[in-house]
């Protein structure tokens, strides 16, 4: 009796599993379809796209569209390609991610290990910044950037993104450090370590997972931001704004192959970050909740 039941269980298990995998593969293919279209069309001459099938593989393989998108395509009025804007984005993203992550870590450290009256209210107010829509702050932000003399510059964009990111990074690090035993901090105090030494020698070495989360989150958000870039970029617009200017240009022939190549170029850095650190991303998101 028992053997029969077990046998049936295994068989139904196998059938169900085959079905589940089939559905999953189908969904995966469906989600990969846009990527396929972009890659395939970025590698064909323009004639093949306008004259034929979007779904077909390139008849003649070419990397011309990529080179054009990178260095010669018309962005607005200048035929510079996306290259200078890519550099702008890097110059904006790297300091903005670094500064907001470091400040978030310090905030989290203070809010959990150096508690003071009203700390929870302060944390609540910082969290509030995560829920403010970008559009609301555009005008006051412009005023402040103007008064600081940072309008239309990369440092201005860095400042804007640091201010916006600090709520998230503080949330991450605060929750992560809340699960970190306070006795360790007390032990280090008795051992004679000061505020920054405890942070540097005791907390930071075990903050790997949450730092990955913070960096990926901040990098993706700042890299992909369009509104702040378009509003405050001025002469130093980031990649996203340039891509828009490339794709939305209303004069001349629409060079779809170049547009596809440019869009992939704009998405590559965030893709790269996910591929390299994505494994740790999930692990870091879970870490704070499971420990404790």
């Amino acid at each position: 009796m028992a053997a029969v039941t077990q046998d049936t269980a295994i068989r139904t298990g196998r059938i169900t599993r085959t079905f589940i995998y089939l559905v999953l593969v189908l969904f995966a293919l469906f989600y990969l379809l846009p990527l396929y279209v972009m890659v395939a069309n970025s590698l064909k001459p323009l004639g093949e796209i306008t004259g034929g099938n979007m779904m077909a593989l390139p008849g003649t393989w070419t990397i011309e569209p990529w080179l054009a998108a990178w260095s010669t395509a018309q962005i607005g009025v200048e035929p510079t390609g996306l290259k200078p804007y890519f550099l702008n984005s890097i110059l904006m993203v790297v300091p903005a991610v670094a500064i907001s992550t470091v400040l978030g870590a310090l905030n989290g450290y203070v809010l959990t290990k150096w508690r003071f009256p009203g700390d929870n209210i302060l944390f609540g107010l910082m969290l509030f910044s995560c829920f403010i829509p970008f559009q609301i702050v555009l005008i006051p932000m412009a005023t402040i950037l103007g008064k600081m003399g940072l309008a239309g510059s990369i440092p201005g964009l860095v400042l804007v993104h640091v201010v916006y990111g600090i709520g998230f990074t503080t949330l991450y690090y605060r929750n992560y450090y809340a699960a970190f035993p306070t006795e360790l901090v007390r032990a280090a105090m008795i051992d004679g370590a000061g505020f920054f030494r405890i942070f540097w020698r005791i907390l930071l070495p075990v903050s790997g997972p949450i730092t990955v989360v913070s960096v990926i989150w901040q990098f993706t958000n700042i890299w992909n931001d369009f509104l702040f870039g378009a509003s405050f970029g001025g002469q130093s617009q980031p990649m996203t704004v340039a891509l828009n200017n490339l794709v939305q240009s209303s004069t001349g022939v629409k060079e779809y192959n170049v547009h596809f190549a440019g869009a992939i170029l704009a998405a590559l850095p965030t893709l790269l970050v996910y591929v390299v650190a994505g494994r740790y991303f999930v692990r870091g998101l879970m870490a704070g909740s499971v420990k404790g």
Binding site: E183, A188, I190, I202
Partner: peptide, 16 residues
């Protein structure tokens, strides 16, 4: 604490 010339052993050991 570090200037009191004391040492403490914690319940959770608090090893780094």
């Amino acid at each position: 604490p570090s200037k009191r010339n004391i040492a403490m052993v914690f319940q959770s050991y608090a090893l780094y």
